[in-house]
Structures are given as C-alpha cells and as structure tokens.
Design a protein around this nucleic acid. Sequence first.
DNA 1: GGCCATCAACTTGTCAGACAACATGGCCGC
DNA 2: GCGGCCATGTTGTCTGACAAGTTGATGGCC
Lengths: 252, 252
Amino acid sequence: MPQRGEDEDMAGAGGGGQTTVMRFRDGILNLVAERGLKAGDKIPTEAELKAHLGGSRPTIREALKLLEQAGILSVEHGRGRFLTAAGTLHVARSITHFESITEMAGHFGYSYENRVLGFSEETPDKAVRAALKLAPGETIIRLERLRLHERKPLIYCLAMIRRSLISDPIYEVDWSGSLNAVLERYGHAPRMSTAEARAEMLPESAISRHGLADFGPAFLIDETVFTRSGEPIMFASDWYKGSHFAFNFARK
Amino acid sequence: MPQRGEDEDMAGAGGGGQTTVMRFRDGILNLVAERGLKAGDKIPTEAELKAHLGGSRPTIREALKLLEQAGILSVEHGRGRFLTAAGTLHVARSITHFESITEMAGHFGYSYENRVLGFSEETPDKAVRAALKLAPGETIIRLERLRLHERKPLIYCLAMIRRSLISDPIYEVDWSGSLNAVLERYGHAPRMSTAEARAEMLPESAISRHGLADFGPAFLIDETVFTRSGEPIMFASDWYKGSHFAFNFARK
DNA sequence: GGCCATCAACTTGTCAGACAACATGGCCGC
DNA sequence: GCGGCCATGTTGTCTGACAAGTTGATGGCC
C-alpha cells in the first residue's frame, strides 16, 4: 500500500487541516467531544487512536504533541494521556488576541464615529524611539483621535507611527478610517503587539483641550505593534472609558 | 546499539527536560540562539538537527512540532522551517501567568502588610453562584482584605470562597497570610483562572468604610479561580491602585 | 543568446516495525 | 493473607524507507 498519496479526496471536507497531523489533531478533539470526556479523563491510547483515525503511530504522536503543547493534554509515561482542566478554560474574546479597535467595536456592540483630533510629524521621545527601534533622525506621525458612540466619547487614541512607512504626504492620507487598513495599504499590516495595561485618568492635556472631563477612570493599553515579520510599526496608547469596557483573559 | 536507555547522565544538566523530546526542544532553541538567527530566518533542517543533537528523526520532529504549536516556528513543505516573529515577542511578567498576589508582590518590589478587614459566612449572589457552580444552599466565605506598602493601601481584595472547601470553623483560620497557602493546606491549591479586567474607582462602601478616598482609579481584576483539576474554588475581585501597577501581555 | 522543459537534489510529510522504559494488576509461592 | 515476580498495557525512542513539494542546474530548442 502506498503511503497516503492517492489524493484522498477529503479536500474541502468541512474543517480539517492541510496535513494529516492537523487532521488527526482535530480528529482527536472531535473524538474527545463525542465521548463527552472531561478534565482528568484518560483519552484513548495511541493504538486505539490509530485504529480510529488510521495513519501511523509517529503521525498520531505528532498530533498528540501539538495538543500537549497547547496545554490540552498531559502525558504520563506508561499510564496514558489525560485531558487537562486548563484546556477547558474558555475565554470569550481574550485580550491576548490581536485585533484592531475597529474590529473590537463590533464585539462590544458599539458603532463608532471616528473623530480625528489632529496629526503631525514629530520627533519621537526616547521611549517611543526605543520601542520602535528608530534610527537617529527618524521621525514619527503623531495621530490623535477620539472614538464616539452616540456622541459620547468612549476611546481616546494616541498613535506614534514610523514616518518612513507612509510614502505619501501625511495630509493626503485619510486618517478617519481604520488605521490598520491604512497601514495594510502601505504594505505594513499590523499583526501582533506587546502591550501594557493600567488604570488611570485621561492625561490633563486631553481633558482640557477636548472637553473630556466626564470621561472618568480609563483602562489604558500601551502597545508596541509589529508586522507579521516582526518589524515595529507604531506605538499606540488607547484609553478606554472604564465604565464601558472590560477585557477577558485566562491565567495559568 | 540500544535505543537510548543507558542512563545518559545529563541529569541536573542545567535546564533540559525529562524526555528526549523536551531536551531536543530546548536544544533547538539554544542552537537558534547561538547562531543568532532572527525572525524569518531558516533554521537547520531535520537532518542537520539530527547530526547536531543526536537522536532520531521522529524524535526531532516531535520536538519541532512543540515549537510549531508554540508559534515559534513555521513550516513550509519542501522548503524548510523558519523562525516566526511571534516567537520573538518577549513579555516580562505576563498577566496570563497565574500567580498569587503575594508572589506578584516580589515582582513589583513591594513588601506588603496584609490587613484583614473582615470575614463572614454568607449566601452567594447569583453571579458568584454561577461562576463557582454552587449547589443550592451552598454558602461562601466572604473575605475582605487590604494590602499596604509603607502604610499606603495598594490593593483592595474581596474573595468569595466556597465554604465547603474549608473544613474548620472560619474563625480558626489565619486569613492574614497567603490565601493560596490556606487553600493549598486544605487540598485545593489554586492553579489557574479566567479573568476580566476593567478600570473603575473603588466601590463606595469600601471608600467610606475604610478611608480609601485617596486611592484613585483602580485596575480591577475579577477572577474565577480553579484547581489543577478544574474545580472552581473562589471568585476574587482585586482592585490594584492604578498609579502603582501595570500589567503586561502579548497579543497575536 | 535567450527561453523553457526536464531532472536531480534537498526538504518536509508519512508509513512500518521494532525495542526500551515505566505503570499496573494478577498470579504464585511462602 | 501477604509480598515479590511477571505478564501486559502504555508511552518513549530508534531505524529505514517512500511520498510529495521546492529549488536550482542542466540541456535542448527556437
């Protein structure tokens, strides 16, 4: 018998993955779900999985290794594999999932007006230069915006974007839409970030200049945003109105 | 040649893991570090890794699968494996790592006084009952505490603990130490949680009753805490003084 | 000389069978 | 009845092989 190969239809078959290993990973999860196994339960042995899913033991084992690394399974040599409880921690929209503010809007059920408060080309301060690994002399675009829902301000946004990424004059760019879309158009799609969160009041300057005295305590997220290839794009600070936003995550 | 087995000293050798696969996983990371490979770079082929690390191809491949699942490597059939940028996102103390407040204290460089403001046995409200999956009639222990550093209040803590977990009268328990240690002593060590974070001012009742008017905006973390086996233990709300705490995480 | 098809080499994906090491429970002897 | 021994089950590792995608070189054709 040839070793797989005979194009195996299964193309377009619901979910699955490209490689056999990925299909087995999903197959194992399905099997667990079908049998109603819970945290701590023993899952079928490699031999049983092989009988159910086909394939060879190394392939099955690679699929199992994926699930182990994902924290869904734990192994005990000579005893078997067991469902961990960590795998059952379900978090709705984890803060660790990268998404633009515009994408997040839908999740919270808000539709935003996006008001541009100002934009300018500036010299970065030390912190921003370090975060974005800017060369001496490189400048940034400082973009100040406000997101409103039904005329009430909900998010105050400050972005420091590497000037060199935008090949056009900054006044020709439409800053009132999704910033991610703008950056993607210039070939620098944001894909991930390192972030720091804290609770504070809005900066004095923002309160006084834009009439935000009623904003109340804010959930501030400072992010250094990168492309898929790890190139730093911008440093963003977003103050979310505390009374309107909450963020989920799992800890383990 | 026997297939491994000859006890291979290597015990206590720096890091490493128990199994060969774990050692190879670390070995690959070390190799990458030594050679100064960066995001997007091609890592050595399976054959080269085998030559460097020893072992067999299936074992090497299982180690690689771990790194792929961890998001550190990506594969392209026929081309090779490449370092992803996501793997280079380093976060100091991620908020997604479960730890007790006492443990966190050290990280922030604070040493705390732990003041018990009150404890009592109560009937849970609907939200807590749902989060802890309490049976009708089950009660909770409500524990209210304050962490101070140099006499200044930094964290206001409210915990709702399943009464049935503590087999002693609640007034015989020392609540002034680590809550995790107490629960561990009764065989219910906290290990993970689902959490929600937001920014808000302290509850009115806490401000007025405990003189916390100067606390300012707080970073509130609501957590449902579980044991390793997934059993819900308690529902904790911790208000961190916004001016003193920031929390890190990666988004991808 | 330039272009394209073919092919060899490299690399990852999968398969088969085997032995090693750890865990468990039953069997047997005492 | 009890404890040690051993068969069995399960995961860990090794060897060798073929399948399939990618890349670059080769060589023929125009």
